[in-house]
């Protein structure tokens, strides 16, 4: 009686190393990146050496050079949408992410209106590095 041996199985390449590398990359990008809403227009923040670390959370109000506004990445006409959020959490941080060429009168006007709406914590986003034009 002739008994056939099963053909030897081809050695499968191990995927463990690939999983390790992918996992490291995943963790790296999760830690290094920020999940902020980006403005629908170009914003080049002003440069400052004495800025402090920008905490997460709160609302981001983007201001274009021509004064156009965007709240958390969505274009808005005014600050009306921000009013209920400020009323619910007055101490929440509101970041003004404005272009470095935006006239000061626009920014100070916004800060005044935010203060009138009850906001207690407003910050201007700056960049510690020389940004490319």
């Amino acid at each position: 009686m002739k008994i056939r041996r099963p053909p030897p199985r081809a050695e499968r390449e191990t995927v463990v190393a690939l999983v390790d590398v992918t996992f490291f990359l995943l963790v790296f990008f999760m830690m290094v990146g920020r999940l902020d809403a980006t403005a629908p227009f170009a914003v080049l923040p002003p440069r400052a050496e004495t800025g402090t670390d920008l905490p997460g959370g709160g609302a981001t109000l983007s201001v274009a050079e021509d004064g156009a506004l965007a709240l958390d990445g969505a274009p808005v006409a005014g600050l009306d949408e921000l009013a209920p959020r400020i009323a619910a959490k007055p101490a929440g941080l509101i970041r003004i992410n404005a272009d470095q060429a935006t006239p000061v009168r626009v920014i100070l006007g916004l800060v005044n209106r935010l203060e009138a709406m009850g906001a207690e914590n407003v910050a201007i986003v700056v960049s510690p590095e020389v940004s490319a034009p």
């Binding site: 690939l18 902020d36 800025g51 402090t52 800060v111 914590n121 910050a123 986003v125 960049s127």
Partner: peptide, 28 residues
């Protein structure tokens, strides 16, 4: 691996890598 790859691409594409600071404009 499929799920991790999708997560990896998601974080690579949606994250911003600008180093940003802040200066206070209004503080109580």
């Amino acid at each position: 691996i499929d799920v991790m790859m999708i997560l990896l691409f998601f974080f690579m594409i949606t994250s911003s890598y600008l180093n940003l600071d802040m200066v206070p404009a209004l503080e109580k």
